[in-house]
Design a protein around this nucleic acid. Structure first.
Lengths: 212, 212
DNA sequence: CTTAAATTGTGAAAAATATCACGACTTTAT
DNA sequence: ATAAAGTCGTGATATTTTTCACAATTTAAG
């Protein structure tokens, strides 16, 4: 719970920077400019420099940023050294997609337990992650504080209550329901239908520039 | 391509309002206040009133909003009368989740065609949606202008080029790749790993209030 | 009919975010 | 050694978004 000085908009971009820096490092790149990074992550280069500047002077004028140094810096800033365990609630198609999604594996975040209602799934494993019954959350949730909610909307409220009761304080909610939680719990919503409708709306009402 | 006066932040919330208004209408509710709506969608009530006000005076002082009227208004604003067809690219777990996701069915947006590389999938149907080969996009894409990209990141750039070549102008990108497109194409990114890392970062660095 | 409670719509202010533009410094080329 | 090109960090500015707070109006209650 350190410094609360970084703008939220910046904080949301940090994981993105981290991933691309990792790519560059893997590719053996030694240095990178805000302009290059800008083209890769599609964020204005001035915004990138501003974002970085909240953490101090990380680059060198006329040179750019040292990839390895910057990566190390973000690694500790994003607490990549300590692993955060996450529970997956709902092992349907969407839930399974998470379990198979390798980007979550090269990362400080691990889905270590999954929960489902279906008795046929309970007791099995997917990608090495054991599936427990939602009704046995108290036995199996352990110290996990973050959950991905990938269940039908109709069950969202009831399951959320269970999660909160068992100590979850962060929920990534993929259901279309806007769940209600106590103030100490943070919820981020990812709402496919809204995103898709918004995209279509923008296409119709916000004309883009022509190509050059 | 009408009035471009609505703030983008507002535009993004419209589909959300629309969905909840629909819920209320289904429940037989005749009127609703910005305060009630605020509790349902978790958006500040002043923001809701401001959002609505861009479209004129839709409510009545001391009364609130007439659900049916407001719903009708949003229906036409969001072009719910005309159906937008969408192509799904990639019928893995994530793609299948979209096809089964019923929220996209009670809606002006329909996934009508799917594409995949896997020869075992090509020629079959999932939830009544036919699956074609990505290599036969020219034959089957037809007039579709919007695509959901749900394929491995490694293929994102190549497939995007194909999509753009065949007239796609809106892409909802679920891959972690930041794809490059001509200026006339709009891309919205939904990046699971980034969202999850950002949630964890916020939990650690932005303490929430205590419960009452 | 009168009064109290509820609620909108919005001007104004505040807060958050993004962008411009340039001095200072570094690197690269000649 | 010098000049040219590249690049950061950031003050200042612009833009966008949210929030406050209240007059105006409607509804509901007595």
């Amino acid at each position: 719970m350190e410094q609360n000085k970084i703008p939220q908009a910046t904080a949301k971009r940090l994981p993105l920077y981290y991933r691309f820096l990792n790519n560059l490092y893997q590719q053996g790149k030694k240095r990178v400019s805000s302009k290059e990074l800008s083209e890769a992550v599609k964020v204005d280069s001035a915004t990138i420099r501003r974002d970085f500047s909240y953490f101090g002077a990380l680059g060198k004028k006329g040179y750019g940023y040292n990839v390895e140094y910057l990566l190390g810096f973000f690694r500790s800033t994003l607490d990549q050294h300590e692993i955060t365990e996450v529970a997956l609630i709902g092992v349907g198609n969407l839930g399974t997609a998470f379990l198979k999604y390798s980007f979550l594996k090269n990362n400080n975040i691990r889905i270590t337990k999954a929960f489902d209602k279906d008795p046929n799934k309970v007791g099995t494993e997917v990608e090495g992650v054991p599936i427990y019954s939602i009704d046995e959350m108290d036995k199996h949730l352990g110290h996990i504080r973050v959950a991905i909610l990938a269940i039908p909307a109709s069950e969202a409220d009831a399951v959320t209550d269970i999660l909160v009761k068992h100590g979850i304080i962060g929920i990534l909610n993929f259901t279309p329901a806007r769940i209600t939680v106590p103030k100490h719990v943070r919820v981020h919503h990812i709402d496919f239908a809204v995103e898709l409708q918004a995209l279509v709306y923008f296409l119709k009402h916000y004309p883009l520039e022509k190509d050059e």
